Amino acid sequence: MKTLILYYSTYGHIEAMAQAIAEGARSVPGSEVIIKRVPELMPEAVAKSSGAKLDQAAPIASVDELPEYDAIIIGTPTRYGRMAAQMANFLDQTGGLWFQNALVGKVGSVFTSTASQHGGQETTLISTIVNLLHLGMTIVGAPYTEKRLTQIDEVMGGTPYGSSTIAGGDGSRMPSENDLEIAKSHGRHVASVTMSIVKGR
Rank of each mutant, 00 (worst) to 15 (best):
78 T>L: 10
58 A>N: 12
71 A>D: 04
166 I>K: 06
62 S>E: 12
19 Q>T: 01
105 G>D: 02
50 S>P: 00
115 A>L: 09
131 N>C: 13
91 L>D: 03
49 S>P: 01
67 P>E: 14
51 G>R: 11
35 I>P: 04
138 T>Y: 04
47 A>K: 06
189 H>L: 07
90 F>G: 02
57 A>C: 11
133 L>R: 03
76 T>Y: 08
64 D>P: 02
35 I>D: 07
127 S>E: 12
97 L>G: 10
179 D>P: 02
93 Q>I: 00
111 F>H: 00
97 L>T: 06
111 F>S: 00
25 A>M: 07
51 G>F: 13
61 A>V: 05
99 F>H: 09
6 L>T: 02
156 M>A: 14
30 G>R: 10
48 K>F: 07
30 G>M: 09
62 S>M: 06
79 R>W: 13
180 L>E: 04
131 N>E: 14
131 N>D: 14
42 M>W: 11
143 P>H: 05
28 V>Y: 04
17 M>E: 08
113 S>T: 06
102 A>F: 05
165 T>I: 07
78 T>M: 12
107 V>H: 00
74 I>Q: 04
5 I>F: 03
11 Y>S: 01
200 G>M: 11
57 A>V: 12
35 I>N: 05
71 A>C: 07
89 N>Q: 02
26 R>S: 11
169 G>T: 14
21 I>L: 10
98 W>E: 06
183 A>R: 01
12 G>D: 09
159 T>V: 06
81 G>E: 07
26 R>H: 01
43 P>T: 03
113 S>Y: 00
35 I>R: 03
195 M>Y: 05
29 P>W: 04
10 T>M: 13
68 E>L: 15
143 P>N: 11
150 T>K: 05
160 P>C: 05
16 A>Q: 14
23 E>S: 02
62 S>C: 06
131 N>Y: 13
143 P>T: 07
84 A>F: 04
124 T>K: 05
11 Y>E: 04
16 A>R: 12
163 S>Q: 08
104 V>L: 01
33 V>N: 09
152 I>G: 15
36 K>V: 04
42 M>I: 00
154 E>Y: 12
180 L>A: 08
108 G>K: 01
138 T>N: 03
1 M>G: 09
167 A>S: 15
183 A>L: 07
